[in-house]
Amino acid sequence: MELLTLELARARQRLNRAELALERANAMLDEDCGVGINLRLCDRIRSAQQRVGEAKARLVKLDRASTDSVHSG
């Protein structure tokens, strides 16, 4: 059970970091930095969006596992 709790904490932390990176990249895109930089930021945003999605999926998977272990334990 402790391992699952640790994994949940890591997943939440990963999600928080990914969301923060996405927010920062979006904020930088709002600044007028030129086309070349904006293209790079768009790539960075897509990557951050993917990490957020993966982190959310991992968290949901772990959360279900923790719920299942509570119900069956």
Score class of each variant (00 low, 15 high):
50 Q>H: 08
26 N>A: 10
49 Q>I: 01
61 K>R: 15
70 V>R: 05
29 L>Q: 05
59 L>D: 06
52 V>N: 03
10 R>Y: 05
59 L>W: 07
69 S>M: 15
35 V>H: 09
62 L>M: 13
17 R>S: 02
22 L>Q: 05
30 D>Y: 06
69 S>Q: 14
37 I>Q: 11
14 R>C: 02
3 L>C: 07
64 R>L: 15
16 N>G: 04
41 L>M: 10
50 Q>T: 04
32 D>W: 09
61 K>D: 14
4 L>V: 08
3 L>T: 11
27 A>I: 00
43 D>G: 05
25 A>L: 00
2 E>I: 06
72 S>W: 07
43 D>P: 00
60 V>S: 14
26 N>D: 11
31 E>T: 13
53 G>Y: 06
27 A>Q: 05
70 V>P: 00
40 R>Q: 07
10 R>P: 00
45 I>P: 03
56 K>T: 12
36 G>L: 14
28 M>E: 14
30 D>H: 09
65 A>S: 15
67 T>Q: 15
45 I>A: 05
58 R>H: 06
34 G>D: 07
57 A>M: 12
37 I>H: 08
22 L>K: 07
11 A>K: 02
7 E>Y: 01
5 T>N: 14
65 A>L: 15
70 V>G: 00
51 R>Q: 04
32 D>I: 09
1 M>W: 05
30 D>R: 13
33 C>D: 11
6 L>G: 07
4 L>G: 06
10 R>V: 05
52 V>K: 02
57 A>F: 10
44 R>N: 04
4 L>D: 03
56 K>I: 12
33 C>E: 13
34 G>F: 08
3 L>Y: 10
17 R>E: 02
21 A>G: 01
7 E>T: 00
